[in-house]
Nucleic acid binder design. Structure first.
Lengths: 333, 333
DNA sequence: TGTTGATACGAAAACGGTTTCGTAAATAAC
DNA sequence: GTTATTTACGAAACCGTTTTCGTATCAACA
């Protein structure tokens, strides 16, 4: 069995409480005894049992990160940001994937109320408007911070990017490049970030006297290819496309390549994406790049701030702006 | 405070032990009592405290996944595979990032010996040959399964792909496409998978009477760009390149684009990569695609098999073959 | 000399479950 | 009618820590 405080106490002929205090560097214990304890603990390679102390202290030293998907450059970069601060604080990171499944999200979140994690960082699933599980989580005193995909109905802290403005900028960029008919590839559901991007797009088109058109994609790639193929080969073809999420990029490019639709001459494309490799696509893809790492870092920082003192989460709303990365899919030089 | 077994027992005028057994569906408890307990537990929304039961049972219900990096298509897909089986088994997944830092890996792994996790899935860092921490982990009865980046000095289970053969196939493919001078972009350090890919490459070249050349990259992108730029603009330029890891793709393409070196006519490129988007690069990149999801799934499956019964990890070595995805970076039609 | 006050440590009660063991009552076996 | 066995439950120990409280020792002070 593993070496415990009891073992150390017995070896050194001390009480368990004395050893415990010595290890926590309590002022109650003499320097001499501390030295003996530390030395012997090191010799035996003592590692405290995290469950015993979690049970007693009511803190786990874990945080949860709940995401729809990890195979997405935004989320993986956000994890990096989160982990960078969690590691620094000595916390452990538990990752939960929802795969855009609301039931899975619910069952995951429900379990958090028992103290397995001290706090939760979360990007919610699309495709739903049920927030009872999130409300219950907040009610049970587990601090919750949203990042990117926030739920605006829950009064807690969040870290987002300037989605409305980014949608506006994306549309404006296409308009400046001469597009006359710009389609917005959206996602069904109630996702605030999509709504805001879409609203920004609509506002930009309205400001320029143009008619918006929204097309909804799913998370099944073949369906998206079919929908986009129909769009790009039907009558009244668009000359500009805004992809509201990263995943939509692949089907759009795939269709353009297979149908020999030249980018950017026949159609200009811009996507919300964090992909590094966008610059190497054929042609290089213009993106609205979200500050993924920074957003994860900011969200984690807020969480630890509340964990440290009783800081009020409800006030904090951080907005970190996205950046337009202009490349050849919208631009000829 | 949160609702405990004690509370339920008191409400129902039962002993704590009775409630505990009822909740675990013990045969010692009558159907009637069980029904009462379950009903009341549901009504109070009882969630068991994971630390109390972990402490007593000596199992945490957590597994650790230790990776160099999450912003890599192989590792993110592997996490998906791991999570799919962990979730099915009711386990929780803790993710640890080493960022290729051996000291970080050591401190992470050392902590596992106290029972915070019941088992470890791991891809080791490059750049080192120190395995003492891994040996200690194994010695302390925490089951360890390697995937992809295995440490061959540690006698435990592993899931890998056919690296030697893949290296051979990659080289052979380039030779078949007419390359006369093929460079292998390697990584410094002791990583077995790199060695094997490299050996496969060397064997292929030797079999065709060609002279191998290895160039070592780092994990700093600017350095790699400088090295590759020097290679592709110097005298005695290669007409074929094999990238041993995914990250090397970006600098290679970047240099070719900036120096106007046409792919595949002047140089053919093949990379070990799991990137979906490789098909959309300019030109589409030929890859040796590893079965990332399946490898993660297989590794997790082995781990849970040992967790269930005392199954001997040391025997299991699973090899899941990679697939050559032929695309335009090595191939003109 | 008696009182205070540190100082340094020990005993024991938690934390919230699980598990072993004991036992009363009911039933079965002889 | 006595003994054996099953059924259904309770009491208490235990997992490894933390924390509160008690106390013995010794110096300091009046």
């Amino acid at each position: 069995m593993s070496v415990t405080i009891k073992k150390i106490a017995k070896d050194l002929d001390l009480a368990v409480s004395t050893v415990s205090k010595a290890l926590r560097d309590s002022h109650e214990i003499s320097a001499e005894t501390k030295a003996r304890v530390f030395e012997h603990a090191a010799k035996l390679d003592y590692i405290p049992n995290p469950y015993a102390s979690s049970l007693k202290k009511g803190r786990s030293g874990n945080i949860a990160v709940v995401l729809p998907e990890v195979a997405d450059s935004f989320f993986s970069a956000a994890i990096n940001g989160i982990d960078s601060v969690a590691h620094e604080k000595g916390y452990h990171t538990m990752v939960y994937l929802t795969h855009e499944d609301i039931q899975r999200e619910q069952s995951i979140v429900r379990e958090f109320r028992n103290g397995r994690v001290d706090g939760v960082l979360m990007s919610i699933v699309a495709n739903n408007a049920k927030y009872e599980h999130l409300r219950e989580l907040c009610a049970s005193d587990v601090p919750l911070v949203f990042f990117d995909r926030v739920c605006e109905d829950i009064p807690t802290a969040s870290v987002i990017t300037n989605d409305f403005e980014s949608g506006y900028i994306a549309a404006q960029h296409l308009i400046e490049k001469g597009c006359k008919y710009i389609v917005f590839l959206s996602m069904p559901g109630e996702l605030a970030i999509i709504k805001h991007r879409q609203n920004g797009y609509q506002q930009a088109l309205q400001d320029h006297g143009m008619e918006p058109r929204i097309i909804y994609c799913t998370d099944r790639e073949e369906e998206n290819i079919a929908v986009i193929d129909k769009l790009l080969t039907g009558e009244h073809k668009p000359d500009g496309i805004i992809g509201s999420i990263e995943k939509i990029t692949i089907p759009v490019y795939t269709v353009c390549h297979s149908r020999n639709i030249p980018i950017p001459s026949a159609i200009k494309i811009i996507a919300f994406s964090h992909l590094q490799i966008a610059a190497l696509l054929n042609p290089p893809l213009t993106t609205i790049a979200q500050p993924a790492f920074e957003m994860g870092k900011a969200a984690a920082t807020i969480l630890f701030k509340t964990l440290a003192k009783k800081y009020d989460l409800k006030e904090e709303k951080i907005v970190i702006p996205s950046v337009l990365m202009m490349r050849a899919s919208t631009h000829t030089d």
